[in-house]
Structure formats: structure tokens, C-alpha cells
Design a protein around this nucleic acid. Structure first.
Lengths: 229, 229
DNA sequence: TTCAAACAAAATCTCGAAATTTCGGAAAAA
DNA sequence: TTTTTCCGAAATTTCGAGATTTTGTTTGAA
């Protein structure tokens, strides 16, 4: 039934978010077609659609790439998340009912449970997939009671790009204790229905990413030969 | 040089924004190809790229359409504009210098001049193109000194969709006197560098669109929900 | 050696046709 | 009449090859 497009799209999205392709690496339709046993044109279409949601960059006459990792981009995405989640959470406080509260509590409980396991084991990697999904669900539930479909869709798009920017695992996982505390603080603000407090806490939670999280070398000037696959 | 794609893209965008196609009307690659003397596949690609910026809706296995006009969409777009322009304008106040002030003043002057002509002639239609461009430039300059490329790009995308939603001329042109006053008020807040005042005035200027501007029948319940996902 | 033009290889874009899916109306059943 | 099923037409998706453009290397002159 559903065109094979849809399957390829979903799979490619997953591969992109989990960072299977290196930052800035080329995505060649002719290569990718082999993975899906279809024509290059079909892959090309999927890549176009992925560029729709910012997971792939397209440049006229020079093809598709996985986005580069850059401080500027990280900064931008963070700023957008702060704006969208603050606004969305405040609207949710205003418009959401008990039902929203309980869904948020549930999402937090699940997330919290995983975070505890991470803390005690001391290693995030084995739980990274679980944790990622749980965090995403918590943040999406936070803004879910707001009355703007567009705001929610935009947030989802930004969130996925954000995740894509820091898949390089070891990144920010010295931060777990802070994460746990901050998620709790956000939940509390929601249950207290305190909008100003919510804005502050959402900001504090995300603003950590505004300060350069990667004490890395500047990216490889040589706009590298692909070698992507 | 640049692929013909680019030209077709620009032209189609223009046609969409100016409302040449009816709301919700189908966009068939096989028809459109005739306008551009190219193959259907090329048109198809352009349509995909236009769906990137929300000017076209795509649904698997059932093609492309110009977006439907709906109060919900109008509401969403307005809310997003308020958020983006408030934030962007405040950041600009914080980060922009005299150079920004002067560009904003210039943009306002141009806009103001056109608005006066409209008021005295009593008819917007002949100046609609000019006014549209001037208004867009004013609003884009307003947020231009902020430090987030992504915020500016997102605003541009939303703004174009917003415009597309109310091209049906007669719509909100009893509002000209208000428009003139409000644009002035926004400029003043910028020059005073008063962020709180700016938020209020941007909100007031745009919020008019939150109250149903179209005394229409309630929208057709059956919604061909769309947008790839 | 340095720079520029020319060439070769590779990647992207465009095309039209074939395969698949949806849409609309007619025929059959209730 | 109303509902369901089936069929043909129309629209969408997929394909692989040929045309165009970019990229990398070599050649030749300054």
C-alpha cells in the first residue's frame, strides 16, 4: 500500500538522527540506492523530503549532505528550543487540564526511572536509545496542551535537528545529575502552574547548550572528501 | 549556470504567494510542466522543495495542493509570528547598533510613504504589490539584528505562508489607519530600546489576526490532513 | 615554481515511459 | 432507493539512461 518512499524516509531519518553518517558527509543517491534496492531518483526524492525537516542539506547542483556540526547551529537550535518550549509550556499551563498534568507526570516518571539507572550504572551508552526517546517524550508532552499545531510541529523538527547535532555520544553526559534535577524542576513548575517559573526553568535547562559544549578542534578545514560510506 | 530548477522554484513561489491558485486546489505536475516547458519530474522536484517552506502541501500517493485556508492555520501562523517577531525584535534591540536603527527607520519611511498614498487614494489594490514588499521589509528589518539565522529564516517562511493565507485582497484593508499607527509605535519602541514595550506593540499589531478576520462559514469538517508527516 | 587552461572522471539533473495506486462511475446486490 | 463491488480512466510514483555541470588531474606557458 503506502509507497516504498515512506519506509525509506523513516529509515533514513533514523539513520540521520542517530548520527550514522558523519557531520557534513555527502549523501549520494547512487550509493544509498543499494541499501534500499531502488532507483536513484527515489532516493533523491526522499532526500528532498528530509531536507524539508532540516535533517539533510541540499545545495543546487552539488547534492545532499548531512548537516555540519557547528557552534553557530547548536546555538541557533538551542535558542529556538528555548523559545518554543517556553511558549508552548506556558500555553499548556494556561490551556491544559488535569489530563495534561497526569500525562506529563507519567512521562517524567518514565524518564526519571531511566535516568536513575543511568546514574547508578555510570554509563549512558547502553541506555542511550531508551533515554533519548524518554527525554523527547517528556519535552513533547510539556508543550502538548498548547493550542498551536504549528508550534508543536516546529518544535519536533527543531528537536530532531538538535539531537542530530550532538549524537557524538560522550558529548554532554557529565551532566546527568543536572538533567535529573532540572527535569524535576520543570515538572514542579508545571504542577504549580507558574508560568514565569516555567520560563526560567526551561531556559536554565536548555541554556547549558549555549555555552560551547565541545572543546574540540575547529572543524577540518579541508572540506573533506566524502568517504561517507 | 544555475539549474532551471531555481527559476521555476522562484516563479512558482511567487504564484503561490500571490494566490494565483485557489486555496486547496490541486497542483498537477503534468499541467504545470506546460507552463515551464520541462518534464513532470522537474516540476515534481520543485513542488517538493516548495513544501519545504510550507507553501505547498504534499500527501503521499495523492499529490500536491495549495494549502487550504482555515482559521486554525491563520491562528497558528499569527501566533508564531508574534513569538518570532517579539523575540527577534527584543534580541535586535539588545544586539543591534545605530546601523540597525537607521535601516529600520529607512524601511519604515518607505512603508509609511506607501501607506499614506493608500490612505489618500482609498484603494489598496493598485499599490498592493508595493505595500506587501514594503511591509515585509519592515518586519524583516525589525528582527534582522538578532543573532539567530534560524530564527530569521523561520520567520521568513512563516511570513510567506501568512501572506499566502490572506491574499484574498479585500480581507483586512479596513485596517489601514491602525496599521499606520502600529508600525509607527513599533518603530518608536525600537528607537527607545524598550523591550517590554516592543513585545506589547508587536503583539497588538499582529493579534488582530487572532480574532476571526473572515466572517465565513465554519470550515468544512472533512479535513484532508496532509503535510508529509 | 606558480598559475591557468584543458581534459577526464564523477556526480547531479532532466527526461519520458512503464508500473503502481487512486479516483469516479457503472453495475450488481441488498 | 441505498449500499457494495468492480472496472476503466486519471494521477502518482518509480525507473534507468542520456544530458549537463561540477570536480580533480594533467598539461603547458610564464
Amino acid at each position: 500500500m503506502a509507497g516504498q518512499d515512506a519506509d525509506i524516509f523513516d529509515d533514513m531519518r533514523h539513520r540521520l538522527i542517530t548520527g550514522e553518517f558523519g557531520y557534513g558527509s555527502k549523501l549520494r543517491a547512487e550509493k544509498l540506492r543499494e541499501d534500499y534496492n531502488c532507483s536513484a531518483s527515489t532516493v533523491r526524492e526522499v532526500l528532498f523530503r528530509l531536507s524539508t525537516v532540516g535533517l539533510v542539506e541540499f545545495q543546487e547542483q552539488r547534492g545532499f549532505r548531512a548537516p555540519h556540526q557547528s557552534l553557530e547551529r547548536q546555538h541557533d537550535l538551542t535558542q529556538m528550543r528555548i523559545m518554543l518550549e517556553s511558549e508552548g509550556a506556558c500555553l499548556s499551563i494556561r490551556l491544559g487540564g488535569v489530563e495534561w498534568e497526569s500525562r506529563l507526570t507519567a512521562a517524567h516518571h518514565k524518564l526519571s526511572h531511566i535516568e536513575m539507572r543511568v546514574r547508578s550504572s555510570g554509563d549512558v551508552i547502553p541506555l542511550l536509545g531508551l533515554w533519548s526517546r524518554a527525554e523527547q517524550e517528556f519535552h513533547e508532552t510539556l508543550i502538548d496542551a498548547c493550542d498551536s499545531k504549528l508550534l508543536k510541529r516546529t518544535h519536533q523538527v527543531i528537536y530532531e535537528q538538535f539531537r542530530q547535532q550532538l549524537v557524538s555520544a560522550e558529548t554532554n553526559y557529565g551532566y546527568f545529575p543536572e538533567n535529573i534535577r532540572e527535569h524535576q524542576a520543570i515538572l514542579d513548575a508545571a504542577l504549580e502552574r507558574n508560568e514565569d517559573l516555567m520560563r526560567v526553568r526551561v531556559h536554565d535547562h536548555l541554556a547549558r547548550n549555549l555555552i560551547k559544549p565541545l572543546p574540540q578542534k575547529s572543524q577540518p578545514a579541508a572540506v573533506g572528501r566524502s568517504s561517507a560510506m
